[in-house]
Design a protein around this nucleic acid. Structure first.
Length: 479
RNA sequence: GGGGCCGUAAGGUAACCUGGUAUCCUGCAUGCUUGGGGUGCAUGUUAUCUGAGUUCAAAUCUCGGCGGCCCCA
């Protein structure tokens, strides 16, 4: 493929299809088939993410996909937030069900009734449980493969603590996990925003969400972590007997990295006109061996390439392309599919005892003596990871902008997009009308205030209503 | 939530307006050819999303369903 990434929408659709990431021909709206090329990477991401959570004391579980209507309706704000996009199960076989069920859109209402049974005393806390699963939401907005579907693959971690301090510490830990995985490991930059009060997770006290930026300047929400306070504990009776003999409510958090969407961000941010580029440790093919075959001496090249393949396979995921396609064809094919490093072996190389080694991101060539290959490939892999992340960070930094007036905001949004920092009256509920105005006039959404960065406007006026600004909020077009 | 565009083979398309044998490219299969950045040739291979209506006759016209894309909110 050779499609300019500047037209991101075309590029994205092409890469999904040509790199065989998803098959969009499945005949239910908003549902796609995740094909092996994507699924392999996604399961690798799952493994890394699950390891990180387990290192921090979470344990895995599997909860049922169906939730009773009664459970869903227990928490008022929660049901109002989710009911419009729930898939219902109302019939089984030939019987209309007396008690309807929903396909989980998220699992608070499946898990917390069980938590209520599991938690008795202080010794049961903290309880840190996660599950890796699919969830279903009847999206009414336009769906886009891996970015917004009616089914997606995520991890949800649900924790209970004895007090608010536990909750606050957990929110911080979730942010660190996000940094460790999404930024350090996957090379995807993001900002943690505290969402304004009118845009919290349904039922939460506070919501903190990591937003990344897509190449077309539109924000994409990655994991969010929520301080649930005791809102759910109250309705699901999540209580423990404290040291003082009093029964107290549990304090809860939940954290939800959507692995399939994070994969979309990786593909979108790192990819180039030739196809996908993946961090070395995520690549399906870390090394592709391309023998350069001529009629003369083909056998020798093949057997030599086989030997190299065997050697490298001990350390890396290696594929040798012995098809009869021409070399140029193979290069293009493996670049499209994001093979991290290419090792070319032909008669000339056998002669000189060096292989031509090409890294996917920069497509730079170097000559590496055969005996150095195992070591050098590892080094190049490390270099690639670092440079992918740095390049993404550099670009991301250019997507942070500022505006003091609606005209400036509009112009920033229309010229490349990005996160635009604006002085704003308040992130309390009263601020929503100003956010609506921004949506109408500039097609941008208020994503929240930057978490952990102390920035307070002084002497500034709200970009919309002109009242004294109490907060800097970030506006962006969004997926 | 509102508006627009679209659905023909495994992928991309022509024919649709003006109803009458469904075009070409890619892929795939076989053979030859080629070979350090998408070789070339020959032969073969598969199709009108779905349901109804109009008509002697529907890929083409009308209506519904399903599905896709884009723009706006």
């Amino acid at each position: 493929m050779d499609i300019p990434k500047e037209n991101f929408s075309d590029w994205y659709n092409a890469v999904i299809k040509e790199a065989e990431l998803c098959d969009l021909r499945y005949n239910i709206k908003g549902f796609v088939v995740i094909m092996p090329n994507a699924a392999d990477v996604i399961s690798r991401m799952y493994r890394l993410y699950e390891d990180a959570l387990e290192r921090k004391g979470h344990r895995k579980s599997y909860f049922p996909a169906l939730i009773s209507e009664k459970n869903l309706e227990a928490e008022k704000e929660h049901v109002e937030g989710f009911a419009p996009e729930v898939f219902w199960v109302t019939k089984a076989g030939n019987n209309e069900l007396e008690e309807k069920m929903i396909m989980r859109p998220t699992s608070e209402t499946a898990m917390y009734p069980m938590y209520s049974l599991w938690i008795n005393g202080r010794c049961d806390l903290p309880l840190k449980i996660y599950q890796s699963c699919q969830v279903w939401r009847y999206e009414t907005k336009a769906t886009k493969p891996l970015i917004r579907g009616r089914e997606f693959y995520w991890i949800e971690a649900h924790n209970v603590f004895a007090d608010e301090a536990g909750v606050l510490a957990q929110v911080k830990e979730d942010m660190e996990t996000t940094e460790e995985m999404i930024h350090q490991s996957f090379g995807v930059p993001f900002i943690f925003f505290q969402r304004p009060q009118w845009d919290k997770f349904a039922g939460a006290v506070n919501t903190y969400a990591a937003d990344t930026m897509m190449p077309d300047g539109k924000a994409l929400q990655l994991p969010s972590t929520h301080n649930l306070g005791t809102n759910f504990a109250k309705v699901f009776n999540v209580k423990y007997m404290d040291d003082d003999g009093e029964e107290k409510l549990g304090w809860q958090t939940c954290y939800g990295p959507c692995i399939s969407r994070i994969f979309a961000a990786i593909v979108s941010i790192h990819g180039d006109n030739k196809g996908i580029i993946l961090p070395f440790h995520l690549a399906n093919v870390q090394v592709v061996i391309t023998p350069i075959l001529r009629k003369e001496g083909a056998d020798e090249v093949i057997s030599f390439a086989q030997t190299i393949t065997e050697q490298l396979s001990k350390k890396y995921k290696v594929v040798a392309d012995f098809t009869e396609n021409t070399p140029g064809f193979k290069y293009n094919f493996w670049e499209l599919n994001g093979a991290a490093i290419r090792v070319e072996i032909g008669a000339r190389d056998i002669e000189s005892r060096k292989a031509v080694v090409v890294r996917r991101d920069t497509r730079e060539k170097e000559f590496v003596p055969f005996e150095d290959l195992p070591k050098r490939i590892g080094e190049i892999g490390e270099e690639m990871n670092k440079s992918l992340r740095e390049k993404a960070d550099e670009w991301f930094a250019t997507m942070l902008k500022e505006a003091d007036t609606l005209e400036e905001l509009k112009s920033a949004v229309e010229n490349g997009g990005g996160f635009v920092k604006v002085p704003f009256c308040t992130d309390e509920l009263e601020g929503e009308s100003c956010a609506e105005k921004i949506k109408e006039e500039c097609a941008a959404n208020i994503r929240g205030s930057r978490y952990g960065v102390n920035e307070k406007p002084s002497g500034k006026k709200c970009i919309v209503c002109g009242k004294d600004a109490t907060t800097y909020q970030y506006a962006a077009r969004q997926y």
